[in-house]
Design a protein around this nucleic acid. Structure first.
Lengths: 182, 182
DNA sequence: TGAACTTAACCGACCGGACGGTACAGAGGT
DNA sequence: ACCTCTGTACCGTCCGGTCGGTTAAGTTCA
């Protein structure tokens, strides 16, 4: 029947990319199917062909972010102790503002459908398990996790951070906490 | 055609209360002016008289939460060192799930209008300033702040927490960190 | 080979309803 | 009489999703 050597021209990726660009340029609130379609050089129908619903689109975006997250984690050299935790920290520090509006969009959507975040939850559950089993003193490890999470949301929502010097101090401190875990 | 002759003045409070109840019962996504009106036992016009726009309503909700937050902070006995920080921790621990959907609603709305969170930002800026000036080792204090923030979001979004024992360990550890700040 | 047919990918008009906001007409109290 | 407040009706817009095309690239078979 079908041999199909050439992959079906995947517009999905282009669509996701368009959504990212759109979110970065216009803000989280501007992600509508039509807008994404226009940005991707497609029609509304085209987008809906690839993602049968808007939730599916957002879900796809989250998925992409999780994949990127995983890749970043793997880049942490194996020899490091508390590898996962360290990876989390670096991920947060590297994250540019580009992802912020995207995250906000997903967050906003999760207000009406909490299950949208399920993939994130399972991913975090995995990571957390690894982190806690790696570390000697789990409370300290968990506090580091929480602080990193706090840092992420602080950046996401533009909450006050106490100024640059505090920021650096915190990062340094977090690093030493992680170092001393094992 | 007055039925309840009592307390005709200013339905704002009742409206806010209704919005809270609605959010708690139906979820964050269900906060619409009409729904709130129905819940509060008045009409859409009535709600819009008190809050001329939906943003104003959400803003009012945020305000109420901040007031409650401030009151909780004041309940921490003065003699405690790092009073504000301690208050933050206790606030998070006491917070009911009731507030969760409300917070989600506000968060979601802030995706399309980031300035909605401005009051929160200024409040936090104040608190942070006090916390950092109170504490001897500011990085540690900031880490505590971040961890508490992380805790809040973890609860808000139902992110994994590593289980009850870890949770307790974290709380205890946070308390000692705070104790040792001054 | 080439006509008929199938299918994947995409288009775009349209629908329906949700929702924020407006207009205006009272009602009640002072 | 006036001001504060509330109710009803309505409007316009936005947006997600549907649906009947349409195009192009195979595939089948005479």
């Amino acid at each position: 029947m079908r041999k199909h050597s050439v992959e079906p021209r995947n517009a999905s990726l282009k669509i996701l990319e368009a959504a990212r660009a759109l979110a970065a340029r216009e803000g989280a609130g501007k992600i509508t199917i039509e807008a994404v379609a226009k940005e991707a050089g497609l029609s509304k129908g085209g987008v809906l062909y690839n993602f049968s619903t808007k939730k599916a689109l957002l879900s796809g975006l989250l998925d992409q972010m999780l994949v990127a997250h995983r890749q970043l984690l793997e880049k942490v050299p194996e020899r490091y102790p508390s590898r996962t935790l360290r990876g989390h920290l670096e991920t947060v520090l590297q994250s540019q503002d580009l992802d912020d509006d995207l995250s906000m969009a997903i967050l906003a959507a999760s207000a009406s459908d909490p299950r949208l975040l399920d993939p994130l939850r399972t991913e975090l559950t995995c990571d957390l398990e690894r982190i806690l089993s790696d570390a000697k003193r789990s409370p300290d490890a968990m506090i580091a996790v929480l602080a990193i999470q706090g840092l992420r949301f602080q950046m996401l929502l533009n909450l006050p951070d106490g100024g640059a010097d505090i920021r650096e101090g915190v990062i340094e401190r977090l690093r030493t906490i992680i170092d001393e875990l094992e």
